[in-house]
């Protein structure tokens, strides 16, 4: 079973339906025990960073998240779920994140239209830190299109964890990987066939 963390931020249903579509058993849950039982964990989410952190704290699910990541369980952060993994965000002030990955969440240049909304290319890079990890981009061509909707992006301290970049004003990290942790700024659950392929690849890690 793949646990999809429900913390009141956004469209979890489409994430679980997408996993079901690729043949995985998915459970939307806010119960820490489910995270322990799951083969893999997904932190999805759209919305405001500070509110998301507050919700996660209130649900008392943060220790379970930290634990399963330490245990080496495959973990995928999507969009806001990716951003929350980082040290801090500058969205409406400065807010602490989970600090599992080092780096900041920054806003796009004010002159750019935001949200960065729509389909954009992901330039796939080989992960330097985890050369032997299975690839979530297996069978997905370089510069394939994925669906994005966000105003902030992650800027990891260690550029070696960046496995995909996308151009919006400048190149930003649209996919990261460190050991068992994966994060994508795009929405695989909304990226049609290739998005489903990506989720299917994630399921193969389990």
């Amino acid at each position: 079973m793949i646990a999809i963390i429900d913390y009141g931020m956004g469209n979890l249903k489409s994430v679980s339906k997408a996993f079901q579509m690729v043949g995985a058993q998915a459970k939307v849950t806010d119960n820490p025990n489910d995270l322990s039982d799951a083969k893999a964990v997904v932190l999805p989410g759209v919305g405001a960073f500070a509110r998301a952190m507050a919700n996660l704290t209130e649900l008392d699910i943060l220790p379970a998240i930290t634990r399963i990541i330490k245990d080496g369980k495959p973990f995928l952060g999507i969009c806001l779920g990716l951003q929350l993994l980082f040290t801090e965000s500058e969205e409406h002030g400065t807010h602490r994140g989970l600090d599992i990955l080092k780096g900041k969440v920054k806003r796009f240049d004010l002159q750019l239209k935001t949200p960065h909304m729509g389909w954009n290319e992901v330039k796939i890079k080989s992960p330097q830190s985890t050369v032997h990890s299975p690839q979530l981009f297996e069978d997905i061509a370089d510069n394939s299109y994925f669906y994005f909707v966000h105003t902030y992006y992650v800027d990891p301290d260690d550029k070696g964890i960046i496995i995909g970049t996308t151009k919006y004003g400048k190149d930003f990290a649209s996919a990261v990987n460190k050991d068992n942790i994966w994060g994508v700024q795009f929405h695989p659950e909304k990226s049609s066939e290739l998005g489903l392929k990506f989720l299917e690849n994630f399921c193969k890690l389990c």
């Binding site: 002159q111 750019l112 729509g118 389909w119 954009n120 004003g169």
Partner: peptide, 15 residues
């Protein structure tokens, strides 16, 4: 009016 032409982007137009 905002001048956006100088920004590079791979963002596509949506249909």
């Amino acid at each position: 009016m905002v001048e956006r032409a100088k920004f590079l982007t791979g963002l596509t137009k949506r249909i």
